[in-house]
């Protein structure tokens, strides 16, 4: 008995941000991430009947996406020499002749930091699912896309004080949720 229903028409609205953030930290290329996600959606559609409903739709899509990302790296690796990291001292794109300038930045992020940040991003998106659709939408536009208050107000046809109330509610919910799940 399937406990989780599948509905491809809602995939894009519901999961694209999550999938996108999941992909972008792994491939670091917008266009590529876009292609991988469309492949994922298509593969998902094809194998819809294999979805048993044991996992949530999102987990299921993520598992497909993971395979796609692995496939991608396999493919570029099989083109020999392409995937090699070439360390070339006199690279035209590298300005600055000093050795110090070419040394890695010791204060740069470590792999662990990056991983943690990625998980954090997904945790925030997870928590955003607790918000109502309007709250999530407005919060996303304001906080992540950094749009002007005025622009958002015009789009949703609300007053600024309406907007701030919505933002306030969204922030309180998110803070509570993150406090539970992150700290």
């Amino acid at each position: 008995m399937a406990t989780n229903q599948i509905d491809p028409t809602k995939w894009v609205d519901k999961y694209s941000d999550y999938l996108f953030n999941f992909t972008i930290v792994r491939v670091n290329d917008r266009e590529l991430a876009h292609d991988l996600i469309s492949e994922t959606f298509l593969a998902g559609l094809k194998s819809m009947k294999n979805f048993k409903g044991e996992a949530t739709e999102r987990t299921w899509l993520i598992s497909i996406l993971k395979r796609k990302i692995i496939d991608y790296y396999r493919k570029i690796n099989s083109k020999k020499g392409r995937a090699e990291v070439k360390i070339n001292y006199s690279d035209d794109s590298n300005e600055g002749d000093w050795l110090e300038e070419q040394a890695p930045d010791r204060f740069d992020k470590t792999a662990e930091d990056i991983m943690e940040n990625e998980e954090l991003g997904l945790a925030i998106l997870d928590c955003m699912e607790q918000l109502t659709k309007k709250q999530a939408e407005i919060f996303r536009m304001k906080t992540i896309e950094g749009l002007d208050t005025e622009a958002i107000c015009n789009e949703f046809n609300i007053t600024p004080s309406n907007l701030w109330v919505i933002i306030h509610r969204a922030r309180t919910t998110l803070a509570q949720c993150l406090e539970k799940n992150w700290f």
């Binding site: 694209s16 996108f20 953030n21 925030i124 896309e145």
Partner: peptide, 15 residues
């Protein structure tokens, strides 16, 4: 810190 990104409406439309 999380450096969240959103996909644009155009991208969503394509999908």
């Amino acid at each position: 810190k999380s450096n969240l990104k959103t996909c644009s409406e155009d991208e969503k439309k394509v999908w």
